[in-house]
Design a protein around this nucleic acid. Structure first.
Lengths: 124, 124
DNA sequence: ACACATTGATTACAGATGTAATTATTAAAT
DNA sequence: ATTTAATAATTACATCTGTAATCAATGTGT
């Protein structure tokens, strides 16, 4: 699988918001949270292209970028590897840690219940 | 918080299994899964000491290592940051991704239910 | 047609990381 | 006491990462 650094992921994440998009659109989106120099973002875009995480088409002197991987796929793979490394592949201990440290809201609990209901529906 | 690389974490994880422990004990434990050179593990131990993730006492010519951070604390922090980056801090979408891709067993579902029950007990 | 402004390409550079080899130290064996 | 073997300390080195600066190309305005 394609391995992305944290910074690279953030840039790709800005593209996932809406694509295709130009570098300046991406820079624009990122400027809200991050205080990255435009050059930095260009560098990261270049590295993402090199890693095959996105493609581009020329439009005059600009590039129009499109992600070449799916966000859900990518985050699932990362989640699997994370849960494997930290919790031997079991997800409940992760959730349990959140619960114990007061990180779960009523909303989270309801969402989790919904996931469980779905699962049970599919496995009956 | 202390930032550990993947390799560093694996070494610390081998120490968490049982401690205090000597370098050779740790090397021994790791040799099952990893094919790291002994020197590599020593280097990682040194970096872990430098980062303050573990301490040691001398016992003759050997060092006896002890973790200076708690595994549950560390994994919780990492989990929070992971969930924040990939799922805007919400845990349910992570679990949902696992469910949708057939990564959840009956056992996982039961464990999750237990976590939810606990949570509800504490919040009544 | 030409200077300018914009965008992409190339280069930079320090610190982190993976993966050890080399060197120094010292307890243990002879 | 001296050699040896084990252990730790120091050094190595390529790649990745964060964070840009500089160079090159090219569309645009005058």
């Amino acid at each position: 699988m394609i391995e992305l650094s944290k910074a690279e992921f953030e840039v790709l994440d800005a593209l996932w918001i809406d694509y295709p998009a130009t570098a300046s659109q991406i820079i624009d989106r990122l400027s809200d949270d991050k205080q990255w120099h435009e050059k930095t973002i260009k560098t990261l875009l270049g590295r993402l292209v090199k890693k095959g995480a996105l493609t581009f088409e020329k439009d005059g002197r600009q590039y129009i970028y499109t992600p070449s991987i799916d966000r859900a796929d990518y985050t699932l793979k990362e989640s699997q590897s994370f849960v494997e490394r930290f919790f031997s592949g079991r997800i409940a201990p992760l959730v349990s840690g959140f619960a114990k440290s007061q990180q779960l809201s009523e909303q989270d609990i309801n969402d989790l219940k919904k996931v469980i209901d779905e699962w049970e529906k599919d496995h009956k």
